[in-house]
Structures are given as C-alpha cells and as structure tokens.
C-alpha cells in the first residue's frame, strides 16, 4: 500500500519538474518562461520530498522529517529568486512578445 503511495507521489513530482522544464524551453519570451520553473517545480519538489519522507519513515527506524525543511525552504525562496530575475529582466528592457497587453504599465527605472 505505502509502495503505491510513494510511486504515485514520485510520478506526480517527476512530471511537474518535467513540465517546468518543458515550459522553460517552449515559451516564446522571458516573462512567460519564468512561470514554468517558479511554479511547476515548487509543487513537483514538494511531492518528491513527501515521497522520500514516506519512504524513509516506513523503511527505516524512526520518523524522517528533514524533507519538510527542504520543501519549506524551496517554497520560501522560489518567489524571491523569481522576483529578482524579473526585476533584472525589466532593468535590461528585455523584449516581450507583441501580443502582451499593458506594456505601458512598466515604468522606466532610475
């Protein structure tokens, strides 16, 4: 039974990580590429780490909780690094694709 849970969590996590990387390659401009890695990978990593937690809690003596720390850390840092990257992209005035709406909302920086 636990083997099934671990397998399903692993497959979900692996496919989310893969989808994040597919988004990184497939999207046409930088701002759209950012969405894949910042979001899809957080849930992917969270379910991979949950699978590892269940695996080590059932196969080894004692309860393994260090994985929670890693997934919390990733969850907290993903928006911060995404913010820094989009900030530097705006600073360097990267082109967004033509059908992007509301481009005039971007203000020039000092």
């Amino acid at each position: 039974m636990t083997e099934w849970i671990i397998s399903i969590l692993l497959l979900i996590g692996g496919s989310f990580v893969l989808v994040g990387s597919i988004g990184l390659v497939k999207m046409p401009d930088f701002y759209m590429r950012l969405h894949g890695p910042t979001k899809a990978t957080t849930l992917g990593m969270a379910s991979l780490l949950t699978a590892a937690m269940v695996f080590f809690s059932t196969t080894q003596a004692g309860f393994s909780v260090k994985e929670i720390l890693i997934s919390l850390f990733l969850l907290l840092t993903a928006p911060v690094s995404g913010y820094m990257m989009i900030k530097s992209a705006i600073h360097h005035k990267l082109e967004s694709i033509e059908r992007t709406q509301g481009k005039d909302n971007i203000e020039d920086d000092v």
Partner: peptide
C-alpha cells in the same frame, strides 16, 4: 491555492502557445 495553481499552470504550459494572452497588470 498553490496546489490548484500548479495544476492550472501545467495545463497552460502544455497547451498551445498561440492561445496564451500574456499581459502586465498594475
């Protein structure tokens, strides 16, 4: 919301690119 958001974004990423309408909002 994070869980539902991830599923939504995964579907958007795997779908066709031409249908997406990106935008900046204030």
């Amino acid at each position: 919301d994070i869980i539902t958001a991830n599923v939504q974004v995964a579907i958007l990423i795997l779908g066709p690119n031409n249908k997406l309408t990106p935008g900046f909002v204030k």
